[in-house]
């Protein structure tokens, strides 16, 4: 086995890390209280669960607006543009190569944080699943104002259904997401990167131009 030369790369900015962990706390609280409201168990009590869920949900909504602002003003949105290039190489890596000790086909760099699979996942998460969850949650929260909002015809059952489907999807994402953090060159490498911002990567690897999310000024 050849000894690879590792270098530290500053992958995640302070705001990005803050947003990630804030979102983690918020989603964790939402998931726990949401499942309690759904009648699965008793932890905080129904009333407290509803109140926490409402407060945290609204907090998330506001915080998400900052994230959207950040994504567009920093040009980070380019990291989320989907691509099929090397997509199958990544799928092949996680379903086969990883067991054979192969190196990742799309290594990370500051300007290429996400592999094609991550781009697709995070794009559908940030642009579809989370907004659907937020909009359905906001509607759920505003149930008594529907008539004032011109939504008198809406059914709480349908809103609840969408919200519950979204919750299950996010729950499933979290399971896979948390597991995937262990697939770095050490078990905690990716987690450490999300805490400190710095990740150790192989120095020798070259990044192709298409993988870069565009040069910043």
């Amino acid at each position: 086995m050849t000894v690879r030369k590792m270098i530290n790369v500053y992958l995640y900015t302070r705001y990005e890390r803050f947003w990630h962990w804030l979102q983690m706390v918020l989603i964790f609280l939402l998931l726990v209280t949401g499942l309690e409201v759904h009648g699965l168990f008793t932890l905080f009590g129904f009333k407290a669960a509803v109140e926490i869920h409402n407060y945290v949900g609204l907090t998330w909504l506001i915080a998400f607006a900052f994230f959207v602002f950040w994504v567009f003003t920093t040009g980070e949105w380019k990291q989320y543009i989907p691509t099929t290039k090397k997509m199958f190489a990544v799928i092949r890596y996680y379903s086969y190569g990883i067991f054979r000790g192969e190196t990742h086909p799309v290594p990370r760099r500051k300007d290429a944080k996400h592999n094609p699979l991550q781009r697709l996942t995070y794009l559908s998460l940030a642009a579809l699943l989370l907004p659907v969850q937020m909009v359905s949650g906001l509607l759920y929260w505003g149930y008594n104002s529907w008539a004032d909002w011109g939504l008198a015809g809406l059914s709480l059952g349908i809103v609840a259904l969408v919200h519950i489907v979204g919750a299950f999807a996010i729950f499933a994402f979290i399971i896979v997401h948390v597991y995937m953090t262990t697939t770095g060159h050490t078990i905690l490498a990716h987690t450490k990167a999300m805490i400190t911002g710095w990740e150790e990567v192989d120095e020798a690897v070259e990044i192709e131009d298409w993988e870069r999310a565009g040069q910043k000024a």
Partner: peptide
């Protein structure tokens, strides 16, 4: 005839 959080589910 109505959906009630905590009581009802699909």
């Amino acid at each position: 005839g109505f959906y009630m959080p905590g009581r009802d589910s699909f």
